Simulated scan of single mutants.
Amino acid sequence: MKIAQIAPLWETVPPPSYGGIELVVSRLTDELVRRGHEVTLFASGDSQTLASLEAVYPRALRLDSEIQERPLYEVLVPSQAYQRAAEFDIIHSHVGVWALPLAEVVSTPTVHTLHGRFSRDSSEIFGYHSRQHYVSISDAQRQTDLNYVKTVYNGIDIANYSYYPTPQDPPYLAFLGRFSPEKGPQHAIAIAKKTGWRLKMAGKVDAVDVEFFEREIEPLIDNKQIEFLGEIDRADKADLLGNASATLFPITWDEPFGLVMIESMATGTPVIGIKMGSVPEVIAHGKSGFVCETYDEMAEIIPAALELDRKTCREHVKNNFTVTQMVDGYEAAYKKVLQSSIMQSLMKNNRFNPAQLFSLLR
């Protein structure tokens, strides 16, 4: 198949540190190329890929200090991709609402992966384009009535995550993610304070979250019990997670997926999460971690998490959340959408050509 992948411009593909969507796009795109597909990636010019790179802008928007209104540049990616729509069998968008109006006016079908949570306003916009083809990244994410093709869980290359059979001594808990209210770093700190555990925290602080960080997080960082590592690269992330006794995932919102959960379990470290969004779908309760009703329960269950088999945590990821499984899911979604699109076109024109159908779906 000839496939266009449309990535956000905010981070490079793959991202040097934080950037879940861009990491997923990178793994998906490269594996599609390995499987023999002809793939064009529309992304920032500093991206690295096995596909043909269409550099929409020279660098990731987050790294360009000269841009004052970064969100305006997000429209560049789908604009350039859809100008070339006729060159592709299918277009795969990872940029949310920006691609929807353009997808409606070209004959090449689009698969839209929903990477975020629905708000009242975004539900209205997606609902207006409800007949487009959507892939959810968890069943819990499906909170708006759309034309869902499939749920495809995000996947990682487990070979990039070393297995840590035993946690570091002295022991600590880990928190990895954006320092924003919805990710729950304030709850991670409260759990550590309540239990007396050391807590190592890493992640980025976006401009919109600086006030929250300075008010609620920074005063509690003593670099003794509560240690802040800042934004770290992928190798350091694996060390942080793998050496931990458990990883805390105390979110306050309906997280659509949460890559950090599978990254932690891949290293062998169990995850203790709150029962919101995709958490019950990602954690095997009582095997690779625990799904808790409250933050107090998260604190109380730490001793039980220490008794879990770390090999089982890694096996859970191998069996459910690898790049291979993710790409298998997307190939199935592409074929389903293409089959529907071709059949509609042929029926509309009173033509049916089995050879054409076979050539596109093989």
Rank of each mutant, 00 (worst) to 15 (best):
G184P: 07
I251E: 00
G203H: 02
T195K: 11
Q168I: 03
A190S: 15
A207H: 14
A246Q: 09
E182P: 00
I251H: 02
I221T: 00
P256K: 02
A246K: 08
Y172L: 05
N223L: 12
D209G: 07
F179K: 12
D222Q: 14
L241G: 05
I221M: 06
V210E: 15
E216S: 12
S180Q: 15
V208E: 08
R178P: 03
A190Q: 14
K204L: 01
E216W: 13
A174K: 01
A202S: 10
G184F: 13
I226P: 00
I217S: 09
L199N: 04
D222C: 14
E227Y: 08
A246F: 05
V205M: 02
F228W: 15
Q168M: 10
A235E: 15
Q186H: 14
K200H: 11
G196F: 06
L173P: 04
L176F: 07
E231Y: 03
G177M: 04
L248H: 01
E227W: 05
A188G: 12
F175W: 07
G196V: 07
P181N: 02
V205D: 00
A202R: 10
L248R: 03
R234H: 07
R198H: 13
I251M: 05
L248Y: 07
G203M: 01
N243A: 14
P185A: 02
P171E: 04
R198D: 09
W253A: 03
E211T: 03
F212Y: 14
W253E: 02
L259R: 06
A192F: 07
I189C: 11
R234N: 08
F257G: 05
R215V: 06
I189D: 03
I221C: 05
Q225S: 12
S245E: 14
F179H: 14
F179P: 08
